[in-house]
Simulated scan of single mutants.
Amino acid sequence: MTRTVLITGAGNGIGAAAARLFAASGDDVVVTDIDVDAAAAVAAEIVAAGGAATAHRLDVADSEQWQQLSLELRSANRPPAVIVNNAFFQVTGIAHEQSEGDWNQQLSVTLSSVYRAMRTFHDTLTAARGSMVNVSSVHGVLSWAEQPAYGAAKGGLISLTRQLSLDYAPHVRVNVVLPGSIETRQWDHQGPEAQELARRQATLQRLGKPEEVASVIQFLAGDGASYITGASLVVDGGMTTTLGA
């Protein structure tokens, strides 16, 4: 049976890899991103490969855009059975140096967007006995300098996942993945020294690939994980082992 899978932040990186993987398995993918051109490119790639996908602009911090997307999907008879919350926003700087706007935006995009997703589509997830997979980070359990709001948001995602898994049981399973250092465009502004340090911090001595996180997301959303809910799966190449979390 074909499922509709909604993925946020799916124009690049882990979200895009997840979109391709779900589509390759026969799911109908709703590719959303604040960068609609990036989302459209991913959706077009999926369709060209024989899959089903549409692209939609979605600012996950905007409740009105969630409602508009809901209207579009419901009118097209595409109620989401799976939601992957992957969008994030990151600004570096110690707490007193961050503007209140930057602080609030990081929490709104990374953490509160999951509330908006569940508020918008709790009924479709429930009807489908579906699944939500949230993308946190090792930042949720480890601390790096000048990441107060980002770390708080990613840590909050872990707690929120457990809470949602309880409140929407037994019909909806909710789990969270914690990626480590993954080869995404977030490394574009980092020098080779930073990447080498990240490799050394991982037990496997390399950066991960977006597809390696996407495969775990797909597993958690599938029948093979039917008895897993409220779980946090670390996908970090052993970084938290090396660094002692």
Score class of each variant (00 low, 15 high):
Gln105Asn: 14
Gly93Asp: 08
Arg129Ile: 11
Gln163Leu: 12
Val172Trp: 05
His189Leu: 14
His171Asn: 13
Gln90Ala: 15
Ala55Phe: 01
Ala202Gly: 10
Ala81Pro: 09
Ala48Thr: 13
Tyr168Asn: 00
Gln68Trp: 04
Ser159Leu: 11
Ala23Leu: 07
Arg206Ser: 07
Ala41Met: 07
Ala152Leu: 02
Gln201Ala: 13
Gln68Phe: 02
Gly130Asn: 11
Ala17Ile: 10
Val213Tyr: 08
Thr203Arg: 13
Leu166Ile: 14
Gln218Ile: 09
Ala225Met: 08
Ala16Asn: 09
Val82Trp: 06
Ala48Tyr: 07
Ala152Glu: 01
Gly156Met: 04
Glu211Leu: 07
Leu197Ser: 15
Trp187Pro: 05
Tyr150Val: 02
Val172Met: 03
Leu220Ile: 06
Asp102Tyr: 00
Arg3Pro: 07
Asp35Trp: 03
Asp62Phe: 04
Asn77Glu: 10
Val135Ile: 15
Gly26Ile: 06
Lys154Leu: 00
Leu69Asp: 06
Ser63Gly: 04
Ala87Phe: 10
Val174Asn: 04
Ala38Cys: 05
Ala245Lys: 10
Ala53Cys: 08
Ala24Tyr: 02
Gln68Glu: 03
Arg74Asn: 13
Leu197Trp: 14
Ser113Asn: 04
Leu243Val: 08
Asn175Ser: 08
Arg3Lys: 09
Phe121Arg: 11
Ser226Trp: 10
Val84Gln: 09
Met118Gly: 00
Pro179Gln: 11
Gln68Ile: 04
Ala43Phe: 03
Ala214Phe: 06
Ala39Glu: 00
Val177Gly: 09
Asn12Ile: 14
Arg3Gly: 11
Phe89Ile: 12
Phe88Trp: 14
Asp62Tyr: 02
Gln186Glu: 12
Ala41Cys: 05
Glu146Cys: 07
Arg129Cys: 12
Met1Pro: 09
Leu220Cys: 08
Thr8Phe: 02
Ser137Tyr: 01
Asn77Met: 11
Leu111His: 01
Gln67Met: 12
Leu157Ser: 02
Val172Asn: 07
Leu233Gln: 06
Asp123Thr: 15
Ser159His: 12
Ile158His: 09
Ile83His: 03
Val114Gly: 00
Glu100Arg: 03
Ser226Leu: 13
Gly191Phe: 10
Ala44Leu: 06
Gln90Ile: 13
Thr161Arg: 10
